[in-house]
Design a binder for these strands. Structure first.
Length: 823
DNA sequence: GCTTAGGGTTTG
């Protein structure tokens, strides 16, 4: 049995694990039994998951739990990763539901990468240096309402592993196999499996094998009692072996989806057939499948619940992966989206079933989509009334994306069993231009040469068939992202990045890259949409889509002068206005100072005079202060200043934290006209919205408030605070054309500079100017225009634009390279 | 229970 004392913890900077990982990695696995004295830091105090809340202070806290779910490593950008896992507290209080004892953890950056390599499902972890956030998936996964975010230098993951039991059979290379999931470790004796190399197979009793899939047929109904699936596998011996698996239930068949997948088969019997050896399923059969990609998470897709899987298996998978990568039998892409289908090609399609209908005795119609648009016109098939399952028509927008797949003969029965909404992979689908050979009726009267029909021909040759993909498979996650771009509400929010953990790394069409550049882009998207980049000409043809990814250069932008890009925005009425220029503001101040002398001092305050430093006229200005602040010696924190010029106000702003300029109106103290700033804080000026402010005489009840920032001061004054924003129009270009796009909502994210800072300080302004110069080098300079990866949101402006006009806005995109400083 | 299928230069 495991005991707490037997657990080994390692420290973040432990030295005993260097043989496993390079230094500076934030997660480490300690070799078993080694590293005496490596413990979690004593100043960490453990907090139970069930009592964790959004208001928990996470400093010096640790959380302990077992990894019950480990998501794949998702690449957000070059060298930036995200990984999500679920940990569950094993020793929680008995009355705690599993709902609140299981929590999502989200790892970012190299920590995610390291975690992926090092931590297995079943490992027990202690994590620290996290922040507690609201879980965006609580309604979906019913886990803890919070999640733990682990990123940056403070975040640390300690892996608790069991020491190796003394076992003479254990080879040094297999030492880490003792570091198994707790579930497996609890078994009294873990059976030790041996695997036969395919080159050594001889007809005889059942064996276990590993192999890379070189060919597959999805399960199909045999003439006998079972479904039959066929695999051809190979290994380093380069011998190809056919495997025949007969099972009554589809679920018992190996979950192999593409050539290149790696399978582990238990209980297969080598038999002679036509001068070669074949493997056939026998008693004790089970299958595990792994993605064949080097560097992908080693996550088994299992046919049976009680699976044995350890470090030895991990090693086998990784060895086969790298061997296979050096061979040439794995095709570069396993599936083709509708947008990339060539006429007459045979291809595998990942798609979702929207509707279906029988056509005749040997043909069944499947209406599917994958979120991409086929450049050819799609064949329309008219079916008999009342036989369609699902909607008989869709919106024109959606209809233009739907492919009609005709499944023949033996595939009909499978097609009939499919459920609407199923995610499918259709193997060896034939893209056939023209419509003359299509059964049933077509909508076209004459000859429509350019209509694309999709046939799943009869038989199982070439692996023809259909497989329902499980919801959690990477292909489905990618598909869902693509479909969301069309049917979602288009709203982007911060939680989306947390939702993408089960999305595979983004696929970038090589053609796009070629049309772009070999150099790395200087921006990256953080939107989490896993849609393929398109060219600008493709984008223009598909304006109905809400979100696009493009790779472009900046051709030009406006305004050329940064101060013209700065605007004031009212979050209440959404109005955008120019920042009043100094001349106008100075005029308002001098107008106010002319008639400010005759003012009754306010009853709530202490009134006095303040001298302007370095003023030749030695003028004194009226000030009003809160008695409370004066009594606490904090009179410099907030003053009401009367009769000053703009220049004088700016001078005094270096001595007083908050200056509220006031004037006299009918003997009462009031704010200046709202075109003038209502508040000066150092070099920052704050403005109020004319439409939404109800500026009044100071409310006495506000005196006790903590007037520490512009928001509370604005509120107390009845002012609707305006926000500084950056608004620019950029013209971007690629090999196929140019497009005007706005940079507004996410301009601060894009530049990494706040608009408020840009309004107040020179460095922030310089930074933006240098950025623009580096993206779009001025005429005559030798600089090259770098490439940008952008996420563009398309939208129809409600007012102020032509009807049906589509606008584009850059969203969720950040510049990754600092601007080049030109001396 | 011990068949079923045992890949192949595709097409309505």
């Amino acid at each position: 049995m495991r005991s707490k004392a037997a657990c080994q913890f390692e420290t973040k900077r432990g030295k005993t694990e260097q043989h496993l990982h390079s230094e500076a990695m934030p997660v480490h696995v300690l070799s078993d039994g080694a590293g005496p004295g490596t413990k979690i830091p004593a100043d960490l105090s453990r907090i139970h998951i069930s009592v964790l809340s959004i208001s928990t202070d996470p400093s010096n806290r640790s959380i302990k739990g077992k990894v019950v779910r480990k998501g794949p490593l998702v690449s957000l950008a070059a060298d930036n990763f995200i990984l999500k896992a679920v940990i569950q507290e094993e020793d929680s209080q008995p009355d705690t539901s599993s709902q609140s004892s299981s929590i999502n953890i989200v790892l970012m950056g190299t920590l995610a990468k390291d975690f992926n390599q090092t931590v297995n499902q079943g490992d027990v972890l202690v994590v620290s240096g996290f922040t507690v956030g609201k879980s965006p998936t609580v309604n979906k996964d019913k886990l803890h309402p919070c999640n733990l975010l682990l990123s940056g230098d403070d975040a640390c993951v300690y892996v608790c592993r069991l020491p190796t039991p003394p076992d003479p059979r254990t080879q040094p290379a297999a030492k880490r196999s003792a570091a198994l999931s707790a579930q497996v470790s609890r078994l009294p004796k873990t059976p030790k499996y041996t695997y036969v190399k395919l080159g050594d197979l001889k007809a005889g009793p059942a064996v276990n094998v590993y192999g890379v899939v070189t060919f597959l047929k999805q399960p199909y109904k045999s003439r006998g009692t079972d479904y039959c699936s066929i695999l051809k596998i190979t290994d380093q011996s380069k011998r190809e072996i056919l495997c025949k698996i007969f099972c009554k239930n589809l679920e018992d068949h190996p979950k192999v989806f593409q050539v290149g997948d790696i399978v582990r088969l238990h209980g297969v019997k080598p038999q002679s057939y036509k001068d070669s050896i074949e493997l056939i399923k026998t008693f004790g059969f089970s299958a595990l499948t792994f993605d064949g990609g080097v560097g992908q998470p080693v996550e088994p897709r299992a046919t049976s619940q009680s699976l044995h899987f350890d470090q030895e298996d991990r090693r086998m998978v990784e060895e086969l992966r790298s061997w296979a990568a050096s061979q040439s039998f794995i095709p570069p892409a396993s599936t083709t989206p509708l947008s990339a289908v060539e006429p007459n090609a045979y291809f595998d399609l990942d798609c979702q079933l929207l509707a279906k209908a029988p056509i005749d005795t040997c043909c069944y119609l499947l209406r599917v989509w994958d979120g991409t648009k086929c450049p050819r016109q799609l064949l329309k098939v008219i079916v008999e009334p009342n036989v369609t399952e699902g909607p008989t028509s869709f919106s024109a927008e959606k209809e233009s994306l739907i492919a009609n797949v005709l499944a023949y003969d033996n595939h009909m029965e499978f097609a009939r069993q499919l459920k609407l909404g199923d995610f499918l992979r259709i193997y060896n689908l034939h893209a056939s231009p023209g419509s003359s050979k299509v059964p049933g009726l077509t909508s076209s009267q004459g000859v429509e040469v350019d209509q694309m029909a999709f046939h799943l021909h009869g038989g199982t040759a070439f692996g023809r068939g259909i497989r329902v993909l499980p919801e959690d498979s990477p292909g489905v996650q990618e598909l869902k992202r693509n479909l969301e771009a069309f049917q979602g509400d288009g709203e982007l929010n911060d939680s989306e990045i947390m939702e993408i953990w089960c999305t595979p790394p983004e696929f970038i069409d090589p053609a796009i890259l070629e049309s772009g550049t070999s150099s790395a882009p200087v921006s990256e998207r953080s939107c989490g949409h896993n849609i393929q980049p398109v060219t600008l000409s493709q984008l223009k043809k598909s304006s109905q889509s809400r979100v696009h990814h493009v790779r472009v250069q900046l051709r030009s932008y406006e305004p050329q002068r940064l101060y013209q890009a700065l605007k004031l925005y009212c979050s209440k009425c959404s109005n955008i206005q120019e920042v009043p220029d100094d001349e106008l503001v100075a005029g308002l101040f001098s107008e106010a100072s002319r008639n400010s002398a005759s003012c009754r001092p306010p009853s709530w305050g202490i009134s006095g005079k303040v001298k302007i430093p370095e003023d030749s006229l030695n003028r004194a200005l009226g000030v009003h202060l809160f008695p409370q602040l004066v009594s606490e010696g904090k009179h410099k924190e907030l003053i009401f200043l009367r009769g000053s010029t703009l220049e004088e106000t700016c001078q005094l702003a270096s001595s007083y934290d908050n200056i509220i300029p006031v004037r006299s109106s009918d003997g009462h103290l009031t704010l200046l006209d709202l075109d003038a700033p209502f508040l000066f804080r150092g070099r920052k000026r704050y403005y109020g919205c004319r439409r939404c402010s109800k500026a009044a005489v100071w409310d006495q009840t506000a005196e006790g408030l903590e007037l520490t920032d512009e928001k509370t001061i604005a509120e107390a004054l009845g002012v609707q605070l305006l926000q500084f924003v950056l608004l620019m129009k950029l013209q971007v270009q690629d090999a196929t054309g140019a497009l005007d796009v706005f940079l507004w909502r996410d301009a601060e994210l894009f530049f990494g500079v706040s608009a408020e800072d840009a309004a107040a300080n020179q460095e922030a302004q310089d930074s933006i100017c240098q950025t623009m110069d580096s993206l779009c080098p001025p005429e005559g300079s030798t600089g090259e225009r770098p490439w940008l990866d952008l996420c563009l949101k398309a939208y129809q402006p409600k007012e102020g634009g032509a009807q049906d006009q589509t606008c584009y806005q850059i969203c969720q995109t950040t510049l990754t390279q600092p601007p080049v400083h030109t001396p």
